[in-house]
Write a protein that binds this DNA or RNA. Structure first.
Length: 296
DNA sequence: TCAGACCCTCACAG
DNA sequence: ACTGTGAGGGTCT
């Protein structure tokens, strides 16, 4: 058998309150591809295929893994959701959102991939971000081992790799003006001007300040990385969707400054504010989809 | 504090 | 079918 393909190994995890499809398609990660009942992606250089039932997730990979901790951590399978939901504000909007998004989870992603992906996200729709990230990996990532007869899959390119690219090579991945930001940020990471590995040890505020040193990273993207990669549960990324949700649900549709929204969310949504944010975001997208998906 | 620029793609109107 | 138009998980100046 060729080195580039091996038969999959399967394992099964018991779950409770875990909506895999909602979680993987909720705009926090951009490399999950839906294939029938399965979800396929590459996590830290490993090909992986997931499927789920009411009470279990089945995972397939090609390495005979001695440990599944990398996947357990990524999917946050050990997390009990009920204390999180219990800590949400007990108001009507949040009740609606939790009902509509039952089982939605936050992932714990690789910081570099998360950071780079969100630099690419500015002024883009989620489908477009997925396309850009897919091109970036296909053109500049390394091939990973996949099962026989499976299409080729690629790892997320390292900071060093992207730092060595020309801006034109990056633009060829359809990222437009974001190319300069990505290249510069990759160079700074590669040169250890900002050390992603040391951030978890700092508090959320110091970690945020470090991320804000990177070009193309403002408050919103910094908060996405703090929440989706480092697990700072108080981080509350405020984008156009969440702004709209907060304004409609808590400010009677009146215009509100970003600063005011920031202090409101910090005070109002509590220690799991980031989780609440994801529920509001997904809830808004579901409502929007229901409205726009009226094609016969 | 505030527009406007920044690239490019796709959905949607006409 | 074919072209025109606008806005899209922001950030920077």
């Amino acid at each position: 058998m060729s080195i580039s393909s091996r038969l999959p190994v399967r394992t099964r995890f018991d779950i409770h309150d875990y909506d895999l499809a909602a979680t993987l398609s909720s705009g926090q990660a951009f490399r999950w591809e839906s294939q029938g009942n399965h979800w396929v992606s590459v996590i830290e250089g490993r090909w992986v295929r997931l499927s789920s039932t009411q009470d279990a997730i089945v995972a397939e990979t090609v390495e005979a893994a001695e440990s599944w901790s990398w996947l357990v951590n990524y999917l946050q399978l050990q997390l009990d959701l009920s204390p999180v939901l219990a800590a949400f504000p007990n108001d009507n909007p949040m009740l609606e959102a939790t009902k509509a998004c039952h089982g939605l989870r936050l992932l714990r992603q690789d910081p570099w991939e998360c950071l780079a992906s969100f630099i690419l996200s500015s002024s883009k729709q989620i489908v477009q971000i997925q396309q850009i990230v897919g091109l970036l990996c296909g053109r500049l990532g390394e091939r990973v081992v996949v099962p026989p007869d499976h299409l080729p899959c690629f790892s997320f390119p390292t900071p060093e790799r992207l730092a060595d690219c020309s801006e034109a090579e990056l633009r060829a991945c359809k990222m437009g003006f974001r190319a300069a930001y990505l290249k510069k940020t990759a160079s700074m990471i590669a040169a250890s001007e900002v050390n992603l590995a040391s951030l978890p040890a700092s508090g959320i505020e110091d970690a945020r300040q470090e991320l804000l040193k990177l070009p193309g990273v403002g408050r919103k993207i910094a908060d996405c990385v703090l929440l989706f990669a480092y697990g700072f549960q108080k981080a509350f990324p405020i984008d156009v969707w969440v702004t709209k949700a907060l304004r409609e649900l808590y400010f009677r549709g009146r215009p509100v400054s970003q600063e005011r929204l920031q202090s409101f969310t910090e005070a109002y949504f509590g220690p799991f504010g980031g989780y609440a944010q994801q529920y509001l975001f997904h809830y808004m997208r579901l409502r929007e989809r229901r409205l726009t998906l009226r094609k016969p």
